[in-house]
């Protein structure tokens, strides 16, 4: 793997949450690279650890319950996880920005849009004058497609629609032209039309400022539209990693296959039964021995309960990994 091109390198990231009685391991040995200018998708069922991955990288896990217990996140030859707090303040928002799942609650209800947007300039460009900051705010709001930005700056979040708020969040995230944007289900809470507008907007802006995006979603359709590479997560683990085209054409992991089959398609006759993956995600408190997916897997054999498959790189295919001991025989 060409490590020169790697912008962010996540190695063996393991995160736990302390609950009342014991601690649960929510992320287990998550390892992946993010390359310059690429869009990396993270997909998986609800609760598999997508948001926790993002928050661990940003060091924004809810304190004191959430804690990274192992692993490194390397950015610019530095491990973000061992950086001083002050240093981290200069990276968040400026170098690595994040958009959250819920546009309705992500903005502070008691402050005007202008104030919340202006803050980011205050933090990272304290030398900027009021007037310059105001001009920059108008500029960025126009860029994310908000009509009459002058007026919007004086409004409060509750006066904006969900789509507008998410645009404001994107404006905030992009105002410092970050290297990396982590978008945690940025469109899940929006209607389809607005969703498409926001996705197009993100794609345009990505090209314009040449940033890398980590795009978190549970919607494979969005992944197909937005991403270059995909990570499939299951119960705190990465089960498969592949370029988007390869993943859709030749999925290797039984879980990925299941996910792909659960997408409704135009070709299938209407009203036919949609394939779903039977069963439930295992409880993270007592993870079964061996493969985590085996209880829901159609191809379970005895060995699956003995070995805990790690994500092995696949032959000479670049950046492909799969965590299944039977992938080879199943794919042939």
């Amino acid at each position: 793997m060409a490590s020169k091109d790697v912008l962010l390198k996540v190695d063996n990231l393991t995160t736990t949450f302390q609950t009342d009685e014991d601690s649960i391991t929510v992320l287990d040995d998550v390892t992946f690279d993010l390359h310059h200018g690429e869009s990396l998708g993270i997909v998986g069922e609800s609760g598999c650890g997508k948001s926790v991955t993002a928050l661990s990288i940003m060091r924004l896990l809810p304190k004191p319950a959430g804690q990274v217990v192992k692993g490194t996140v390397t950015y610019n030859d530095e491990n973000l996880l061992s950086l001083s707090r002050e240093k981290m303040y200069t990276i968040r928002g400026k170098k690595i920005a994040m958009i959250f799942q819920e546009p309705m609650t992500a903005l502070n209800p008691v402050h005007r849009i202008g104030k919340q947007l202006g803050e980011i300039y205050q933090i990272h460009f304290p030398e900027m004058s009021e007037a310059e900051s105001h001009a920059a705010q108008i500029d960025i709001l126009e860029k994310v497609g908000i009509p009459s930005p002058e007026k919007r700056l004086r409004e409060y979040p509750h006066q904006l629609s969900g789509g507008m708020r998410q645009r404001v969040m994107i404006a905030m995230a992009l105002s410092c032209k970050p290297d990396i944007l982590i978008a945690d289900e940025p469109t899940t809470a929006l209607d389809v039309t607005t969703q498409n507008q926001i996705l197009n907007l993100m794609r345009e802006l990505q090209q314009e400022i040449n940033m890398s995006i980590i795009f978190i979603t549970h919607d494979l359709g969005v992944i197909a539209e937005m991403c270059d590479r995909v990570i499939v997560m299951y119960a705190g683990r990465i089960v498969e990693q592949a370029p988007v085209k390869d993943l859709f054409s030749t999925p290797h992991h039984p879980y990925t296959k299941g996910l792909l089959e659960s997408i409704p398609r135009l070709e299938t006759p209407p009203k036919s039964r949609l394939e779903i993956i039977e069963g439930l995600v295992p409880n993270l408190k007592n993870i079964p021995e061996g493969c985590r997916f085996r209880s829901r897997c159609d191809f379970e054999v005895e060995d699956c309960s003995k070995t805990d498959p790690k994500g092995e790189p696949i032959g000479d295919e670049s950046h492909r990994t799969v965590a299944c001991i039977r992938w080879q025989e199943l794919s042939s």
Binding site: M58, L60, Y89, T90, I91, R92, G93, K94, A97, M98, F100, E102, T105, A106, L107, N108, P109, E119, I120, I123, H124, M169, M172
Partner: peptide, 10 residues
């Protein structure tokens, strides 16, 4: 969430 947003801004 909005406190997390503020922190994410740096």
């Amino acid at each position: 969430d909005y406190v997390r947003t503020a922190m994410a801004k740096g």
